[in-house]
Design a protein around this nucleic acid. Structure first.
Lengths: 111, 111
DNA sequence: AATATTAATCGTATTCATACGATATAACCA
DNA sequence: TGGTTATATCGTATGAATACGATTAATATT
């Protein structure tokens, strides 16, 4: 029991869900805000600003990176992260288009 | 250890994260599609179409309802679910506005 | 070379999510 | 009333996410 069944859905559904999952924690939304605000996206600044341990932030950054929402570059002893605007926009439009598609299909005022 | 820290973030961040979490599973996206497609939003149809057990679907429906994305009404022996367009649109615009706000703040081409 | 700084990774504990079968509930039909 | 149908809920097993301290790795600094 409890063997995951995500693979049985369409790729589009899986991709959109994965994107949503990347945003499904307030810490990660806060991280994106910090990355956008600062002109330099040094990781240490995020640790200072957010109420989480360094290792936890690092973990969240990794997830955002895996989801493709941010890029990371090693810069000497530190790491420089920044938002991947292309990917972010792609998902933004994809999500809006899901919403609009759903709405168009919905022919009936239901319930 | 591992005591949740979600409360330590802003309400807006929490709300957006909660919405994202509701969409963070392909089954729930698929459910929304079915609800939009059918003129009648009987729960049983969803069970027929998706590769999940009835109790699992029921659980996912409950989460979508808790997140405010769908409404449910009891209709005799069955249940009638439908998308809460108002809530859905609210989150859609809120998400787009986050994206645009982030982009505006981002003064530097980084990394 | 020795030490400090920065961030990633490891190990691990705890909590949450996902999935199912079984059972309960509630309305309808014979 | 007895049985059927439709859905929710319970119990439970497993897997994933979250969080932290400790350690490692890699570059700077002295």
């Amino acid at each position: 029991m409890a063997t995951p069944k995500k693979e049985e859905f369409s790729k589009k559904e899986q991709d959109l869900a994965a994107f949503a999952k990347a945003l499904a924690h307030p810490a990660r939304i806060a991280i994106l805000k910090v990355l956008a605000q600062r002109n330099e996206c040094i990781c240490g600044e995020i640790v200072e600003v957010l109420p989480l341990a360094q290792s936890t932030i690092s973990q969240h950054l990794k997830e955002l990176k895996t989801a493709g929402l941010i890029d990371g570059a090693i810069d000497g002893p530190r790491s420089c992260y920044c938002i991947n605007w292309k990917a972010f926009e792609k998902f933004n439009t994809e999500f809006s288009s899901l919403f609009n598609k759903l709405k168009d299909q919905n022919t009936k005022a239901c319930c």
